[in-house]
């Protein structure tokens, strides 16, 4: 135990990894949850891969000297926001299916764009572009942590302030507008701030893991849990635990922490489906027992059976 603490105190990269894991778990429990509520989990993937395309543009502009000031992170943020705006535009009517297509198209566009530019980028930079795809939480820089932390703080602040509005937009866009709420503004606000957080998280852990961490726990919790608050909390726990497991395991055996975290997070979704199924069976068994118990005494004098629901 003491050894572990010493190790953490001694290695700044481990500290950064832990802070990063914590921040990403927060992003997952806010943006991830709301995107799943909105029926838009795919946008996580879209924004993450767009970030990759944007980063490629940054490397290209820097390598060719066209715009040396254009940091790849700027490109990543810009492209991710672009995806969220296109998605939001397609979904202004409130229909989630339409947004799904918009995400797919932006996804394809940014990946093609990235591959296109790779022909003109020096090969060491190409490797850094691929890092956006797989990421490595143990290689985070101070700048990564600070930018991710700043975005997370803004994200949490906005989610606390406008959580109700985001839920209303997800549940009943038309009704919200008809009651005088500016649903369009909240619709875009949620998508844009989520995209920013996703882009920065992508830099930290890679596009594939971002999708696994942001979507799988939220989808799993939404299958099993029965209130908005408990879903948010569960997502935070699942995301954090899978990341910590990844980091810990990478010290014991030679594995990529992101890969482990991604696998565990994805498994949580399957576990969620299984729990839901199992619960249905338990429910049926109990019902049968209940019926057997009442069978002999099913007379009019019996009080009606209690349909009480546990929470």
């Amino acid at each position: 135990m003491i050894d572990l603490l010493m190790l953490i105190l001694d290695s700044p990269f481990l500290q950064r990894a832990l802070v990063g894991a914590f921040l990403i778990a927060i992003v997952a429990s806010s943006s991830g949850t709301f995107l799943v509520f909105r029926g838009l989990s795919f946008m996580t993937s879209g924004a993450a891969h767009a970030a990759l395309g944007g980063a490629a543009l940054g490397f290209y502009l820097q390598a060719t000297g066209i715009a040396p000031w254009f940091d790849p992170v700027i490109g990543a943020l810009l492209f991710a926001v672009l995806v969220s705006v296109v998605t939001g535009y397609a979904g202004e009517s409130g229909i989630a299916e339409k947004m799904e297509v918009a995400v797919g198209v932006s996804f394809a566009f940014s990946m093609s764009f990235a591959v296109f530019l790779m022909y003109y980028i020096p090969s060491q930079d190409v490797l850094r572009i691929w890092a956006y795809l797989v990421g490595d939480i143990l290689l985070l820089t101070d700048f990564d942590i600070i930018s991710l932390a700043a975005t997370t703080v803004i994200l949490v602040f906005i989610m606390i302030l406008f959580g109700k509005e985001f839920i209303y937009v997800s549940v009943d866009m038309e009704g919200s507008i008809a009651h005088g709420m500016n649903a369009r503004a909240y619709h875009y606000l949620m998508l844009i701030i989520s995209a920013l957080a996703i882009a920065l998280a992508t830099k930290a852990v890679g596009a594939i893991l971002v999708y696994a961490i942001m979507v799988a726990p939220a989808a799993a919790s939404n299958e099993v849990l029965r209130s908005v608050r408990s879903v948010i909390l569960a997502v935070f726990c699942i995301a954090l635990l899978s990341e910590l497991a990844g980091i810990s395991l990478s010290f014991i055996i030679r594995v990529s922490p992101s890969a482990v975290a991604g696998v565990i997070a994805s498994l949580s979704y399957i576990a969620g489906l299984y729990v839901k199924r199992a619960r249905q069976h338990v429910g049926l068994d109990e019902l049968e027992k209940e019926l057997e118990k009442h069978q002999p005494s099913l007379t009019p004098s019996m009080p009606p059976s209690n349909h009480h629901h546990s929470h």
Partner: peptide, 30 residues
Amino acid sequence: YVPQRDHIELNVPMKVKDIVLMGRLLKKPP
């Protein structure tokens, strides 16, 4: 306003009381 039922998204585990409360809270400013 109550929209046609199929316009209500069932993806969010919102409680019954919160759905009803929504009608009142939507009339207030944030």
